[in-house]
Design a protein around this nucleic acid. Structure first.
Length: 345
RNA sequence: CCGCCCUUAGCUCAGACUGGUAGAGCAGUCGACUGUAGAUCGACUUGUCCCCCGUUCAAAUCGGGGAGGGCGGACCA
């Protein structure tokens, strides 16, 4: 694979890349590039996580060495989203779920290294860099950097501010050339690009994933159960959520159903050399088969493909894609039970 | 250490002074209309009134104690 192909693979299905030319230079240089993505083990993982996980397959295929950071300390620093006592249980759950998703996406989880934040964030060199950064970062700068990520409140704690600085330092501590994350992380990684050089580190290249729409229009929201598909949802649950999804005929904006197909289902099917089939009554024209997302979208926009026909097909495909993850999690019910004792007792 | 304020539906809050066992908006659920959903109409649901003790025929409401949260003062080590 040449540099152009590797770059294309790395940048496809992304919202923004900073800077593409730096990626090309990285591939041209000697050695194996390293990338990382971090997840703070807070709430239960869902299909939105899965799409970023799916993309890890592209990183691996492009010959990039990958680290997944389970940012346990961050999960607590951000307004104690995860209670201190549950950090370990939630990290264990995240590790298993992430591994299952990577494999369900058709990549080899063995190729990914897992690290927990507390494994290195308490070491002296890291701590020293944190104090140095604290010393010359203003409140407003830290607030601005983290405003899209950290829970905002009238009476914020210091944890949310330190959170931001630490995430910037993580990039360097993990030796990552590339930071991958959702576009909501942009503020923090721009801060990292601005500040890491002051500490003698390289500016990280940033690859941002799009944030998918929720199923009820607007963003996916933890507080709206029906706005997202959970990894443990069975086929019936997926069907009913997709059936209830916001999906105006011909419209692609805020259309979660289309986005799930584009960013998750089609890439996975493509890896399996399979097509996406929409079963449709003869009355409306009979079945349709799609090899790629583009033709499906143009049919949807033109009105050839109606939402009522698309939805059942999408639900079945999504359910099939998440099935291995669901099974893996159901095999070890104690993981969820101890990570979320209040909802899984 | 001291003082003040707050705690009522999933959320934001009213009701407390003048005790009669609870309300609004939003959210949610369900219908109607759409070959899906949304929007729009229409209907409906929701509560350990933070906890304990006391006064009273009767306490979200009054008194005492406690818990949690917030704000301020003092201290300037």
């Amino acid at each position: 694979m040449d540099t152009a192909e590797r770059t294309e693979l790395l940048t496809r299905f992304t919202e923004e890349v900073i800077e593409r030319s730096e990626i090309e230079a990285l591939f041209e240089a000697e050695g194996t590039p390293r990338a990382y993505i971090g997840y703070a083990p807070t709430g239960e993982m869902h299909i939105g996580h899965f799409t970023t996980m799916r993309k890890l397959a592209d990183f691996i295929d492009a010959g990039v060495e990958l680290t997944v950071l389970v940012a346990d300390l961050h999960a607590h620093l951000d307004d104690a989203k995860s209670p201190y006592e549950l950090l370990d249980a939630r990290s264990a759950y995240y590790e298993t779920a992430i591994e299952a998703m990577i494999e369900a996406a058709g990549a080899d989880a063995e190729a990914v290294s897992f690290v927990r934040g507390t494994e290195f964030q308490l070491e002296e060199p890291y701590t020293m860099e944190l104090y140095r950064t604290l010393a010359d970062t203003t409140l407003s700068r830290a607030q601005r950097a983290g405003s899209e990520v950290v829970r905002q409140s009238e009476n914020p704690t210091l944890g949310g501010l330190v959170y931001t600085l630490m995430q910037a330092l993580d990039v360097a501590a993990l030796g990552a050339d590339i930071a991958y994350g959702g576009i909501d992380q942009r503020g923090i990684y721009m801060f990292a690009r601005e500040r890491l050089p002051d500490l003698g580190h390289e500016k990280p290249i940033c690859v941002f994933a799009p944030l998918l729409s929720g199923l009820s229009g607007g963003k996916m929201s933890a507080s709206q159960a029906d706005s997202k598909i959970n990894l443990t949802d069975d086929e019936a649950a997926v069907e009913s959520k997709i059936e209830g999804a916001y999906c105006p005929a011909g419209e692609t904006t805020d259309n979660g159903v289309l986005e799930y197909l584009r960013f998750l289902v089609f890439p996975v099917l493509e890896g399996r050399d399979r097509a996406f089939v929409v079963e449709r009554p003869e009355e409306y024209g009979g079945d349709l088969t799609y090899d790629g997302y583009e033709t499906l979208e143009s049919d949807f926009v033109s009105g050839e493909l109606h939402p009522a026909d698309l939805k059942p097909a999408a639900a079945a495909a999504i359910s099939e894609v998440i099935a291995p993850v669901r099974e893996r999690l159901l095999e070890a019910p104690e993981l969820l039970a101890s990570a979320y004792p209040e909802t899984h007792d």
